[in-house]
Design a protein around this nucleic acid. Structure first.
Lengths: 65, 65
DNA sequence: TGGATTTATACCCGAACGGGAATAAACTAA
DNA sequence: TTAGTTTATTCCCGTTCGGGTATAAATCCA
């Protein structure tokens, strides 16, 4: 799923024609975080991830594996 | 959604007749973490949350808001 | 090909997560 | 009630996340 999360963010970002820096600013997180996120880092903090997802009308939730 | 995550864990835990201590041990996380989780703390680390969810065949994923 | 833009990697460091333990509170049963 | 179990609150403290920055690598066009 982490690959999915990373890909979701990456594709959404590109769909909005944003670069990582712009996305970081819009989401209110650091550039480093966007990079960790798009590279599938697994130890991210949920609240920060949700800050980014909310820009795209999404959030973290429980899904079946 | 955080309330949902908290409630999901809590109801699953009870469905398996586990107390927080047992769940913590089975998931390989600290008791403090289970408590933070069930009380809806938003700044949890994704990997730790997934450690717990995997016991119930679930995981964190992107969902619509 | 070369220059500009974008992305990736590496470092420092403050802030806070999470483990563990102690204590208190809440709940249940006898 | 009282004892026993479970859950909640609070502390110390090591580990690491995430911001910021600098540098390198990759990508994109003209």
């Amino acid at each position: 799923m982490n690959q999915n999360l990373a890909n979701y963010i990456k594709s959404k970002r590109k769909a909005f024609s944003l670069n990582q820096k712009d996305l970081a600013e819009k989401a209110g997180v650091g550039l480093r975080f966007i990079r960790d996120l798009e590279q599938g880092k697994k130890t991210l903090r949920m609240d920060k991830v949700n800050q980014v997802l909310s820009l795209f009308g999404a959030e973290l939730g429980v899904v079946d594996r």
